[in-house]
């Protein structure tokens, strides 16, 4: 889990909260020094802080949610693996491109005793780690590794659990040379062929094709403050508004939040986060995730191979909104 002893990184809309918290501790210190009883005042201020926190996090704009989803302390794939599984063993390499993509990790683990294949984008915990992991932007090798591991799971009849957390697939020249488009496309098609349960969760940022490349599943879960988008609001604003500064408007217009996507029928379940976001209480968040995974796996593992494939097909078959013109 991210180290909570460090000073928390503040998002701009959290500033009033931070100020309030600072005032509370100031008063507490003063009271201690002067030996005055201020319990009432502190109680009052603390309940105000709680209320304010709930208000702020209850009414985040899409652009603010994006900030929470991208929070550097937000729990990542490996954090959740550590918190909710036993027997984890990471597996490496796609056996073809000649290196191991650290932006997309995978391996075997037990979830309450049941062996599962876990895959997920992995952002770095600090700058150095981020450079190693290319900020969670996976390359063709990453998607091919994911496919190799999913094939493995299919062969041994294990459910697949994926964690989506990327701002997008690596857009670099090397990635293009190695066939970024083909690598993602191949996964999209082949994931419909697999006959084991596939359970996908957007834990942070779901960035376009890079997210979908491990996102074709029987169920799609989303954390409350996570986002899933066809293009990053920055890119969208640059293209449609011709002004990257319009990113907040683009975030609003693109309908990227869990509630929006639930309404559009693209997401199956929203997982609540602690007030203050997943990073404010990672262990509680992990427990929520674990329970949701177990609940969904309980249902999916009862289904036959054919049923799984058919329902996965129908789930995506329904997606899309259009109209039939008369005549």
């Amino acid at each position: 889990m991210p180290n909570s002893d460090r000073k928390p990184l503040l998002l701009d809309f959290e500033k009033p909260l931070a100020e309030l918290d600072a005032r509370i501790s100031q008063i507490r210190e003063l009271a201690e020094e002067n030996d005055v009883d201020v319990t009432d005042q502190i109680c009052q201020l603390e309940s105000r802080a709680t209320q304010l926190r709930q208000e702020i996090f209850g009414s985040l704009t899409p652009a603010q949610r994006l900030q929470v989803a991208r929070h550097p302390r937000r729990p990542s794939t490996l954090d959740y693996v550590q918190a909710i599984t036993d027997d984890w063993i990471e597996l490496h390499g796609d056996r073809s491109t000649g290196n191991d993509d650290l932006a997309l990790v995978g391996g075997l683990a037990r979830l309450e005793g049941r062996p599962v294949m876990i895959l997920g984008h992995q952002k770095g915990r600090d700058t150095k780690d981020n450079i190693r992991r290319n900020f969670g932007m996976a390359s063709p090798g990453g998607y091919r590794k994911a496919m190799r591991l999913m094939e493995h799971a299919n062969r041994f009849g294990m459910p697949i659990v994926t964690f989506i957390d990327t701002c997008g697939a690596n857009p670099g020249a090397e990635a293009e040379r190695l066939g970024q488009g083909e690598a993602i496309a191949y996964n999209l098609r082949e994931m419909f062929r697999l006959e084991v349960p596939i359970l996908c969760t957007v834990i942070g940022e779901g960035g376009s094709g890079g997210a979908l490349g491990i996102g074709v599943g029987d169920r799609l879960l989303m954390f409350e403050h996570s986002v899933y988008m066809v293009a990053s609001p920055e890119a969208c604003a640059a293209i449609l508004w011709r002004d990257a500064g319009k990113a907040p408007q683009a975030a609003e217009a693109l309908k990227i939040t869990a509630t929006d996507l639930l309404q559009l029928g693209l997401v199956d379940q929203i997982l609540p986060e602690p007030v203050g976001g997943a990073h404010s209480n990672p262990l509680q968040t992990a427990a929520t995730l674990k329970q949701a995974l177990l609940d969904n796996l309980a249902v999916l593992t009862q289904m036959t191979r054919q049923q799984l494939k058919e329902e996965r097909y129908q789930k995506f078959r329904k997606m899309g909104v259009y109209t039939q013109l008369a005549g």
Partner: peptide
């Protein structure tokens, strides 16, 4: 993908790929 239809556009990638998987099978 058409940005004006948001995530619905992204999901068309999966939908078409699904149909191609059946065609291929």
């Amino acid at each position: 993908a058409r940005m004006q239809e948001g995530m619905l556009s992204l999901m068309q990638m999966a939908k078409i790929s699904a149909a191609l998987e059946r065609h291929r099978a």
